[in-house]
Nucleic acid binder design. Structure first.
Lengths: 212, 212
DNA sequence: GCTAGTTTAAAACGTCTGTTTTCAGGCGTG
DNA sequence: CACGCCTGAAAACAGACGTTTTAAACTAGC
């Protein structure tokens, strides 16, 4: 029982509340109250609030990155004895994994995108540095495949365009509730995460190829 | 003297500190201390911390939106008796105004982009609703011109792609310091705001046109 | 049954927060 | 001069916060 019930309930509650209100605005008391556990349990199991935040990210990101890493290895094998991996295939892979690597529950993916948005706009370096250190290799691996998919885009421009794409994804999906309201009002159309992802793919593909 | 010296100094300090550390993490004491004014001055002049945040946005956004509005009216006049406004021209206009509508000081623009990032990831509705209410018309005006620049993109897809672009811009520019460090390490190239904007334009143009 | 690890309950700690108040002076306008 | 507005200094307020502590239960494994 490496993962006791209390730990899991704390992580679940923290995940939702951090996404809803942000890190600083979410108190440990709110978390433990929602989780139905004792206030002291957080510091008992995690040591500090900061460590809890990292644990929330780790629980989500590790399975996703492992899945992505495995798929990328597959693709590298395919592309070694054959043609390059097309851009659309790479993007589709990432999006499918991001939305579906946790038991087909896009709502959790949505929560996590909000979390990522908060993490990135958070100017404290701890978290960002930690993320880069732990998940940088997978990112670079993905970038390498991408580079071969669009060889006419100079490496540095590609670097920036990938970050632009990340911005588009995280920003949009983390502000989705408000955008949903507008979309419903202006176009009378409800919007789901998978729907947005479908809209995102041509945008990102077009952006990475560049439209001068 | 509608704008006393104290008010200006508070706004200046708040702008920088909010961008650096976020809203919740910046105390009124830090602001007044940096501004060299009394703690009570904030509540005296603005009424509350929330009102101060809005004031910071207002001071920056109002001149920018006025300038944008004027330029858009120009363009509407041109396009009425003539062809459409090309997409690149619209994007270039917006970017130039965003960077230069405050006396050619891109550093302030950068600060403000960080601010916008914080505002958008902030889930409290007040600020977002307030921004939408005050600056929605200009945004819709810009969108209308955009629609005519890319008539083959369905309105709803265009709506989303504009938000994707916003995300790319705000996300990238609000996390620029960290990205600068990576870029310098990997490509040995220093990066300025104008430089990023140049990189952004083809990405956004390609994304909005869509690259299926 | 003893022991070690969990969990709860409750209270307290010190600190920081936004906000308010009080008192004092400064400044220009009528 | 007197009045109103701005500013400064200082203190206090009540509340929330992260964290720690103490004590008493529970729950397994040896």
């Amino acid at each position: 029982m490496s993962q006791s019930d209390t730990v899991k309930r704390i992580l679940d509650a923290a995940e939702v509340l951090f996404a809803e209100k942000g890190f600083a605005e979410t108190s440990l008391r709110a978390i433990t109250s929602r989780a139905g556990v004792n206030l002291a349990a957080v510091n008992y199991h995690f040591g500090s609030k900061e460590a809890l935040i990292q644990a929330v990210f780790e629980r989500y990101l590790t399975p996703f990155c492992q899945a992505l890493d495995a798929k990328l290895e597959e693709l590298e094998g395919e592309s070694r004895n054959g043609g390059e991996v097309p851009l659309e295939k790479l993007l589709l892979l990432a999006s499918r994994l991001a939305l579906g690597s946790h038991g087909d529950e896009p709502r959790r993916a949505m929560i996590f995108f909000r979390l990522s948005g908060q993490a990135y706009s958070q100017p404290q370096d701890h978290l960002r540095a930690w993320l880069r250190e732990h998940y940088g290799p997978v990112f670079r691996r993905f970038l390498a495949l991408l580079r071969r998919a669009v060889p006419d885009v100079p490496p540095m421009e590609l670097f920036w365009r990938v970050h632009f794409s990340l911005g588009a994804v995280i920003f949009t999906l983390s502000g989705m509730e408000s955008l949903q309201a507008i979309s419903k009002k202006d176009f009378n159309q409800t919007v789901t995460a998978t729907h947005i992802t479908q809209q995102l793919l041509p945008f990102v593909a077009g952006g990475i190829r560049g439209g001068g």
